[in-house]
Design a protein around this nucleic acid. Sequence first.
DNA 1: AACCAGGCGCATA
DNA 2: TATGCGCATGGT
Length: 276
Amino acid sequence: MKILYNSNNIIVSDLVNFNLDLILDCGQAFRWMRCEDGSWHGVVRGLPLTVRQDGGTLTLFDTSPDDFERVWRGYFDLDRDYSELCERFSADASMQTAIGEYPGIRVLNQEPWETLCSFIISQNNNIPRIKGIIARLCEGFGNPLPGGNYSFPNAQRLSGLTVDDLSPLRAGFRAKYILDAARKVADGEVNLTALCDMNIDDARVELIKIKGVGAKVAECTLLYGCGFAEAFPVDVWIKRVLAEIYPDGLPACILGEQGIAQQYLFHWRRNAIQGD
DNA sequence: AACCAGGCGCATA
DNA sequence: TATGCGCATGGT
């Protein structure tokens, strides 16, 4: 991997195990839009970004070296060795198949509050609707950013709102959960920063104090938002994988980073031809 | 027109 | 501890 700064763009070349289309559209992040020309546009930690991949080259447009080092390098998980990881995972035949069909999936390192809030919204919901609700949340309550973008509203901002205030989101029964999360995070009852430095079992206990946060949402928050690679969200698709392929438990070769392995299994099973 | 969607809270036993 | 049901909303 090489990194160049060229006319306001960051260019990452010699990238391997990186498929931007899969990474941004495999159900882990909900604020990225694919443009007609194949590039992607999104907002992370208050920074709007247009990014595109051409083979082994990733171009982050209009990005400073400082923002790249501060935000994007970690966000895209560029310092994790996915070659070594996937080789290890491939000791299991099903993992080898899942990785072989969808190589280049990575787990993003997202902002903890946005992750928590997004996966509260995700419950008993489908991805297009999740994206719509989150877009309306940001446009309605986030801060305007250059280029017509909006930040993800922080917990402090949302903690002062009511269910009625959130009605334009059409989030349904999830609105009250968003507010409970916002209040508990804003007043420090749940400290998301501290969470990321705790051991994972303690972190789970903290998160499920929030109404509307059960095991699944907690695991997603820990995996995508707090850097716990061993967090293992079990949704309907992973439930099917466990029942069909791993009735006796997860293979030893994914333990420690089973959350990352889960992302390959999830996408593989969800996109499987129906009929089995 | 039922059924489903990256679940969870609550009641019941 | 373990089930089962209702939940807002929108798409098929």
